[in-house]
Amino acid sequence: MSGNGNAAATAEENSPKMRVIRVGTRKSQLARIQTDSVVATLKASYPGLQFEIIAMSTTGDKILDTALSKIGEKSLFTKELEHALEKNEVDLVVHSLKDLPTVLPPGFTIGAICKRENPHDAVVFHPKFVGKTLETLPEKSVVGTSSLRRAAQLQRKFPHLEFRSIRGNLNTRLRKLDEQQEFSAIILATAGLQRMGWHNRVGQILHPEECMYAVGQGALGVEVRAKDQDILDLVGVLHDPETLLRCIAERAFLRHLEGGCSVPVAVHTAMKDGQLYLTGGVWSLDGSDSIQETMQATIHVPAQHEDGPEDDPQLVGITARNIPRGPQLAAQNLGISLANLLLSKGAKNILDVARQLNDAH
């Protein structure tokens, strides 16, 4: 009898209710805020589980004197976190989706994509230029951005401005803007500013005609071990179906173009009346040469937790077992079709030249 009692006690200790789920994140304040929001949602869904947040620095956090596009290494903000995932030191990792490459290392998958916040870019102005827009900034004003995508589009749109690289986390960039006289304004992701509670610093939100956004911008991705079915089931509740389908289309477009950090590629997606609209573009580094096109596809946005595919093969690095396969494939095909259209119009040449120029500098 006593033996059975011990077995029952052991089973209770090993039951999922007692389990601590370890969540990996970057150390920056924004990353911690984003991770806290994901953990809060998981806690609400699984009140019996405990969650421990483990923060670590990544290569991208450490190399702050070089433009991201020049470092010449993929997975700048993800490699150390993936290493911890691989060694079973954490069970899942919360990322900004735009930091996750469209091809993940073997053994990993994006197990959830959370509801997207505003994906557009924002302009934050130096205190002396508050009330201005990019259009009304004085001639030769210097605007800071760490992104080739932003610089290429904005140089084309605002030729009277000069664009220079600015690195560091959000706090560091804002301090550089406010305390030094080098920059009249800087460009940042609206979602990051909003998550930090800095709505009052948003001086201008850039519309798609001015600057399309990065693939996955404004959404959070939760990376897990691809074979860890328990954790895949656990994080599945975080999937937002519309965000998922938009981001599958965007990531398929980028992957098929073979774009990345070192080339200016941008997108804009919208879901309306059962249609998914995808606009994508590529630019030369100075913005003088560009190709942009829009395509659409009829896609039914499923309700969360309709029964999805059981075999769960990944699409552009994403596993969404609780979302039907048909809409996911339709979104992926839309991204591939748009990429093929741009490639047929000469996108590869623009991107190759951009890559060579970026590598040469």
Rank of each mutant, 00 (worst) to 15 (best):
A303H: 03
Q217M: 01
V143Q: 04
I291G: 07
G168H: 03
G274V: 12
V94C: 14
L244Q: 15
V103A: 07
G72V: 09
S165W: 05
Q181P: 06
R321Q: 06
G346Q: 01
A226W: 15
H199M: 13
R164A: 11
Q180S: 11
H300L: 12
K157G: 12
T78K: 12
L30C: 11
A84Y: 08
S288W: 14
G221F: 03
R32E: 07
I110T: 05
A84G: 07
Q275L: 01
E135A: 13
T294A: 07
V94N: 04
K62W: 07
I248P: 01
M295W: 09
H120Y: 13
G197Y: 07
P324L: 12
H160L: 10
R251A: 01
T319I: 09
A219R: 03
L97C: 07
T279L: 06
G274I: 01
L97N: 04
F108D: 01
Q229P: 07
C261I: 01
N333C: 01
L334N: 15
I186N: 06
Q204W: 01
H83I: 08
D312Y: 12
R246P: 05
E210R: 13
I187D: 01
W283I: 05
H268L: 09
E89R: 13
R195N: 01
S69M: 14
G335Q: 05
V202L: 11
F129K: 04
Q332E: 12
S344Q: 06
D273Y: 11
G107T: 01
G221H: 06
L232R: 04
P105L: 08
N349C: 06
Q356K: 11
F163D: 04
G107W: 15
N200M: 10
L134C: 08
L206I: 03
K27C: 12
N322K: 10
D99F: 01
M212K: 01
V237H: 01
S37H: 12
C261Y: 07
E179D: 07
V94K: 03
E52G: 12
Q50W: 01
M271F: 13
T58M: 11
T269K: 01
L341I: 01
T298N: 07
L245T: 01
Q292M: 13
D178T: 07
F51L: 11
T136N: 12
R156N: 12
A330L: 15
R175F: 03
A331S: 04
L148P: 15
Q292W: 06
G111L: 01
V23Y: 05
L137R: 05
A339T: 13
I166D: 01
F125Q: 15
L244K: 01
A270I: 07
A331L: 01
S96W: 01
Q217T: 01
P264E: 05
D289P: 15
G197S: 12
A360C: 01
K115V: 09
F129A: 07
S165E: 06
L234H: 08
R32F: 07
L134E: 04
Y46I: 08
T102R: 04
S146I: 08
K87R: 12
T35Y: 01
E223M: 01
E52M: 01
I33P: 01
H256R: 11
I323T: 08
K27D: 14
H95Y: 03
F163T: 14
V222K: 01
R225K: 04
R325A: 09
A191H: 01
K345N: 11
R156I: 14
L81R: 01
P119E: 06
G168P: 01
T172D: 01
V93R: 11
I186T: 14
L193E: 01
V215S: 14
S37N: 14
T298E: 10
K87V: 07
A303T: 12
D91K: 12
K62V: 13
S69V: 10
L188K: 01
F77I: 04
V202N: 01
L351Y: 12
N88K: 14
A84V: 07
G48A: 13
I323Q: 15
E242Y: 01
I231Q: 01
L244E: 01
P208H: 11
G326L: 05
V224G: 05
D359R: 15
L97W: 01
Q204E: 09
A360V: 15
S96N: 01
A44P: 06
H268T: 01
I318Y: 10
R173M: 01
R116Y: 04
R355W: 15
S96R: 03
H126N: 11
P119N: 06
V94A: 01
R32T: 07
P309E: 03
D178I: 01
L81M: 08
A55I: 08
L245D: 01
S290V: 08
G24Y: 01
E135V: 14
R22C: 12
I110C: 09
M56Y: 01
N340F: 07
V23I: 04
D352W: 09
C211Y: 09
I63P: 12
Q34A: 08
L49K: 07
P127T: 11
A252D: 01
R201K: 09
V90M: 09
P159K: 10
K43V: 15
E73C: 07
L76A: 06
I318D: 04
Q180T: 10
T172A: 13
T35I: 01
P302G: 15
F163G: 08
P101R: 01
T269R: 01
Q356I: 01
S75R: 12
E89H: 08
L343Y: 01
E306A: 15
V263A: 15
A112M: 01
G131K: 08
G203H: 01
Q275I: 05
D36T: 11
L161G: 04
